[in-house]
Amino acid sequence: MHTETIVDVEAFQMRFGDKEIIHDLSFSVNKGEIFGFLGANGAGKTTTIRALLNILQPTAGTLMVAGTRYSPSMAAMLGYLPEQRGLYRNEPILDTLTYFGVMHGLNWTDAKTRALKYLKQVDLAGKAKARFATLSGGEQQKVQLGSTIIHDPALLVLDEPTEALDPVNRALLLDLVTQHRDRGATVILVTHRLDEVEQLCERILILKDGVRAVYGHVDDVKKQFGGRALNDIFLSLHQKGAS
């Protein structure tokens, strides 16, 4: 069966000065799947995402989104939640969500309507005019996710989306991600949380020191490692001396 891909990375290499961060990385993400992109801190996950989204220029290789190099003109199809994230602290959340909708291709009226709808969906309609800085941590995360999905993107790239979330908000966020996948969106989930990966992802890639260590369907990966849980596989890969 032919599977249509939305992300294709081929022989990607990234160097910062003399230091090689990513070495000969190739993978693809299928349309409509939740793809787990794993690795320890400093493995090169964020660098790969930034290169994929054309924020950084790769040293070598090709990184394609929907068959072409990503450019801001494709913003309408992308929802990106970076690892280091935040929003305008002193602006009303409704204004911020509207602005991010507009920056992702919506017109101002449509963006505002969708922002209000989203705030209602996550029980923040009463705080539409509240400044971002006055919200609780969990509420801020909801708004942050809203700014990523308000335009209903075809590709969601979420870098550590559940970091610092309490269990309730974490469940809510993962539910929203699943809803998007169910509507046909593709999700790249960059995370350390292997339980989330087991729960949500069809396929995974584990990056170790800039090199692809594991890549494939979750069930196939488990089989490959003798039926062990993903957590054990991840730990064994990162034990001292493992290669």
């Binding site: 930034r50 989204l53 054309n54 924020i55 990503y70 801001p72 913003a75 992308l78 990106y80 939640l81 970076p82 280091q84 994230r85 935040g86 929003l87 305008y88 602290r89 991010f100 920056m103 992702h104 700014s147 990523t148």
Partner: peptide
Amino acid sequence: NRTAEILLTCA
């Protein structure tokens, strides 16, 4: 505010 990285994917 850490919004610059997101904006760079939009414009």
